[in-house]
Amino acid sequence: MIEINTVSKKFGKLQVLNQVNLNLEKGECVALIGPNGCGKTTLIKSILGMVLPDSGTIAIGGKSISNDFLYREKIGYMPQIGKYPVNMTINQIILMIKSIRNTNQPLDEELYVDFEIDKLKNKKMGTLSGGTTQKVSATLAFLFNPDVLILDEPTAGLDPLAAEILKQKILKEKEKGKLIIITSHLLSELDELVDHIVFMQEGKLMFHKSVDDLKNETGTDKTSKAIIHILKN
């Protein structure tokens, strides 16, 4: 589904991505992990076309994404820190994104209902708490039934109840055979969700393995323990 081929990116002198190769298939739920500043967000932003790589290619569904923008119809993105125009209300934002996407497919309004966004819809984005903003981001990411879901620290800032709703939703979409990419530092929550792990360090991709392989290699029974094991060695 997503093929990343020797992608490199420099910000000034800092090498943020260094010859990254990665293949992700449909139906996978991938955790993108690594220490802070290892290039996770830059890699995600490269897939979204927000950051343009210095070299290498990225293809989605067999088509290169450079000079293309329509491919983003297939992607739902939930940013780490959702930044929205402060003067627009939640309702205006949702309406605007709907009109941009301009789709006639049925919308997935499950999160909109479960997060009870209808009650808040006339509030301005600037007045919302971090958690509520994350709820809006999540709703927008799932709204258009995308084939690929990219979630950057999805549960950071959400209350336990909302985090659980989101987790259940992610599991549900995974069952439908979508590709889900999650970055997170909360290892415990990854346990239930992911089946593949991609580990990055200093802009390099260290490995891409299935969770089962990883558990066998490290002799642990939980994903979180396996990751800790790797981080220590």
Partner: peptide, 16 residues
């Protein structure tokens, strides 16, 4: 001040 607005739009299917 529209930086956020631009970032939001860029992640959707729109030409830059």
């Amino acid at each position: 001040n529209s930086n956020e607005f631009i970032e939001l739009l860029v992640s959707h299917p729109l030409k830059r």
